[in-house]
Amino acid sequence: MGRIICTGLGPGDPDLMSVRADRLVRAAQHVAFFRKKGRSGQARRMVDGLLAPSATEYAMEYPVTTELAFDSPAYIQCLARFYDEWADRLALLAQEQAQDIVVLCEGDPFFYGSFMHLYTRLQGRALVEVVPGIPGMVGCWSVTGQPMTWGDDALTVLMGTLPEDELVRHMQAADAIVVMKTGRNLPRVRRALARAGKLDQAWLVQHGTMPQQQIGRLVDTPDEVCPYFAIVLVHGQGRRPELPE
């Protein structure tokens, strides 16, 4: 029986993949990846030129993305069926082919990755391994050229999909902030940061570590829909040794 191996690809730059992930991707004969309908898929784009010509690819296309509210019963049921079906297909494929199946995942698979939903469904049905990767937020704060946390700073990671009042509550209590899943939620994130008194400290990093990377102060960025792969950062300013005069 083959294994199902989810490889974390890191923040976007192929040079930031782990040695193990790179080796598995290049040797894979069966490769699965998530994508929106009509798109190539971010994870698949990250391995362009790395896959063997003989590799068989399996595009796991989300049945819905933004068409339904993410917390609605219809959305939850639709996604549950999608993950059920692909867990069945991957388990059967691993058994029938007796070869490893490499599942591609941006960032780290266990950090808000879609593969987690397959991982829980595959337990006891297939041999499953996870190769960790550098989370996208780490790549984003590295390209700002500033330390993200100092001393005993408390770092809070938030989703832009949270209600505005919830965002404000967490932001007010945090020393350093990462906001993921911005995209069309950017106006709400901007308002929450302003209410928390931290808008002037915020950065917006779009496509961090990728060729189309953009970095700028959030206050200087137009209030328009930004890409899904955009992260808002507020760097910590905590305890540190004094610099010599």
Rank of each mutant, 00 (worst) to 15 (best):
V205T: 09
V205N: 07
V205M: 09
V205G: 02
V205W: 06
Q206G: 02
Q206R: 14
Q206C: 13
Q206T: 13
Q206P: 01
Q206S: 14
H207E: 12
H207G: 03
H207T: 05
G208C: 06
G208P: 03
G208S: 08
G208K: 04
T209P: 09
T209E: 10
T209R: 07
T209G: 08
T209V: 10
M210A: 11
M210Y: 05
M210H: 08
M210L: 15
M210F: 05
P211M: 14
P211K: 14
Q212T: 15
Q212G: 11
Q213T: 13
Q213S: 14
Q213M: 14
Q213E: 15
Q213D: 13
Q214T: 12
Q214W: 10
Q214N: 07
I215D: 08
I215A: 05
I215K: 08
I215Q: 13
I215R: 13
G216A: 11
G216D: 13
G216E: 13
G216F: 11
R217F: 07
L218D: 11
L218T: 09
L218I: 10
L218R: 10
L218H: 10
V219D: 12
V219N: 08
V219C: 11
V219I: 15
V219M: 13
V219E: 15
D220Y: 07
D220N: 12
D220F: 01
D220S: 11
D220A: 15
D220I: 05
D220V: 05
P222I: 04
P222T: 05
P222L: 05
P222S: 03
D223H: 01
D223F: 00
D223Q: 05
E224S: 03
E224G: 00
V225Y: 00
V225N: 04
V225W: 00
V225S: 04
V225P: 00
C226K: 03
P227Y: 05
P227C: 02
P227Q: 05
Y228N: 01
Y228V: 04
Y228K: 04
F229G: 05
F229N: 02
F229H: 06
A230Q: 03
A230M: 02
I231G: 00
V232K: 01
V232G: 01
V232P: 00
L233A: 07
L233C: 08
L233E: 07
L233T: 04
L233W: 10
L233Q: 06
L233F: 13
V234C: 15
V234K: 11
V234R: 09
V234M: 11
V234H: 08
V234W: 09
V234F: 12
V234L: 13
V234A: 12
H235A: 13
H235F: 14
H235P: 06
